[in-house]
């Protein structure tokens, strides 16, 4: 039960983080469309790092 609550909290946190990453990346792309490729690469890397963190936490709790 507590595991599930913890998992929910992790997902909320990760969701907020991913939203921030995606939103800021979109803003960046809108501001500088010619840097789309670089921004996307950086976005994917950071999203992956966040994801790794979130999954790590999820599986530690499992």
């Amino acid at each position: 039960m507590y595991n599930l609550i913890g998992a929910g909290l992790i997902v909320i946190g990760a969701g907020i983080g991913l939203g921030q990453i995606g939103g800021k990346a979109m803003e960046g792309i809108a501001r500088q469309p010619e840097a789309t490729g670089k921004i996307q690469t950086a976005m994917i890397i950071i999203a992956a790092l966040l994801e790794g963190l979130a999954f790590g936490a999820l599986f530690l709790g499992k």
């Binding site: 992956a48 790092l49 994801e51 790794g52 963190l53 999954f55 790590g56 999820l58 599986f59």
Partner: peptide, 14 residues
Amino acid sequence: PFSLLVRLFANISA
């Protein structure tokens, strides 16, 4: 290495 291995494993399993 832990983040590398857990990310891949967790994504695919999930």
